[in-house]
């Protein structure tokens, strides 16, 4: 496999920043999963694709827009009708799907080198993200495991809620560094830790 290089490397500096005297509002980190794969089902094949995602990742996806789930190793969520983003801590996820998502069911796109995954966690996560995206981040509108597609200044972003106060953001690799800087600026007032 080709070695994955982080586009954040020149700006990623672990430590505490901003207004953290009264506590750290958010923690920012790069997840760097080994695999990120986009799967799309042809109309009418959605159920088969969801079952295949279940058999490969062990995750059970509920019906409905944006439904998702995650485990220690994998995560998956719907981000558009019939389309899913699936990640795995290990490399080789696209290969694992290759024999199972047949041409009759849908398509597989390996985005492992094309997306950068950033996690924001902590009590002020909703507050910070609400500055960037015109989306309701409350737990009722955006439950744990579910995902959305949205955009900030044309930086297309897919977001999965990975915990009550934790979100995983998938952005285009080429925009990741400037997005990271912006996220740091947005986190400044609440105090943030990079790790």
């Amino acid at each position: 496999m080709v070695e994955q290089l982080s586009p954040l490397e020149p700006v990623f500096r672990p430590g505490s920043y901003g207004n953290f005297v009264d506590g750290v509002g958010v923690t920012l980190s790069e997840i760097a999963p080994g695999s990120i794969v986009q799967l799309a089902a042809w109309p009418g094949e959605e159920k088969k694709l969801m079952a295949t995602i279940g058999s490969v990742t062990g995750l059970k996806l509920a019906d409905g827009a944006g439904a998702g789930a995650s485990s220690e190793r994998c995560s998956a969520f719907g981000f558009a009708p019939g389309k899913f983003l699936v990640s795995d801590a290990s490399e080789g996820l696209a290969t694992a799907f290759a024999g199972k998502v047949t041409a009759a069911i849908g398509t597989i796109t390996d985005l492992s080198h094309g997306r950068t995954a950033i996690r924001i966690g902590g009590p002020k996560s909703e507050w910070v993200l609400a500055k960037l995206f015109a989306v309701d981040f409350s737990l009722t509108a955006f439950p744990v495991g579910s995902g959305i597609s949205t955009t900030h200044h044309d930086v297309f972003t897919q977001i999965q809620r990975s915990g009550p106060d934790s979100f995983d953001l998938y952005v285009f690799r080429s925009f990741a560094r400037s997005f990271w800087k912006m996220l740091c600026h947005a986190s400044d007032e609440v105090g943030y830790e990079v790790r």
Binding site: A65, G66, A80, A134, I148, T150
Partner: peptide, 12 residues
Amino acid sequence: CPYCGPRDVSEF
């Protein structure tokens, strides 16, 4: 949006 729910017009 029938899939995404209520979103700002800037996304469209």
